[in-house]
Simulated assay, not measured.
Amino acid sequence: GQVQEKETAYLAEIIAKVNDLFEGELSDDDQLIYVNNVIKGKLLESKTLVQQAANNTKQQFANSPDLSNELMNAIMDALAAHSTMSKQALESEKVRSGLRDILLGPAQLYEALRERSEGTGLR
């Protein structure tokens, strides 16, 4: 239970800090996925940052110009990837149908929605 509590606290901290950065109608999930999955995931792919993290203190790493450059690259890559996928999904019934199949299959959308409804008493 303690690992899950730490993870929940960690995610809540991310959401609180990201709320201060972005404006507009963004859900907590939108913000969390963008920062903790998309941007962090792209940064984890950087061999330069892996090497710098291994060889520097956190403070030295935080001040690295490479971190700033890689962050900008990650943001641009995420925008391009999401834009490309969204454009294809908007323009193609086949892609939307495939997304629906994935969501109802391995992504377990229905099951996740049922689980949420149980917590809110909507049934």
Results as ranks from 00 to 15, higher is better:
L21H: 11
I33W: 11
D29S: 13
A107C: 01
A54M: 11
H82I: 09
E45Y: 04
Y110F: 05
Q31K: 15
I15F: 02
N36C: 13
K94T: 05
D30E: 11
V3L: 11
E93D: 11
A107P: 02
G105N: 02
N37S: 15
G98Q: 06
Y34K: 08
Q4D: 05
N63I: 01
S97H: 05
L113S: 10
D29Y: 13
E7N: 12
V18D: 05
Q60E: 07
R100M: 07
Y34M: 13
N19K: 15
Q4S: 09
E5T: 11
N63W: 05
S117V: 02
L26M: 13
L90Y: 10
L21D: 10
E91P: 03
A9Q: 12
Y34L: 15
L122P: 04
L26P: 08
Q108R: 06
F61I: 00
L44H: 11
M76H: 12
F61C: 01
Q4E: 07
A112P: 00
E70Q: 11
L26K: 10
H82Y: 12
F22D: 09
E115D: 03
E5Y: 10
A62G: 03
H82E: 15
N36W: 09
A89T: 00
K58D: 02
T57H: 03
L44F: 10
A12E: 15
Y34P: 08
D101L: 08
A112Q: 07
L99W: 04
K47P: 04
E25R: 09
K94M: 05
Q108M: 03
G121K: 00
V95C: 04
G105D: 03
R96M: 03
S46A: 04
D30H: 07
S46K: 00
L21S: 12
P106A: 00
E7C: 11
S68E: 10
L43R: 02
L21N: 07
K6I: 10
V50M: 12
L109A: 01
E5K: 08
G24D: 02
T48Q: 06
V50C: 07
Q108S: 07
V38W: 06
D77M: 09
F22Y: 14
E115K: 14
L122S: 12
S97Q: 08
G24M: 00
I14L: 11
E45V: 01
S46Y: 05
I75N: 02
K47L: 10
F61T: 01
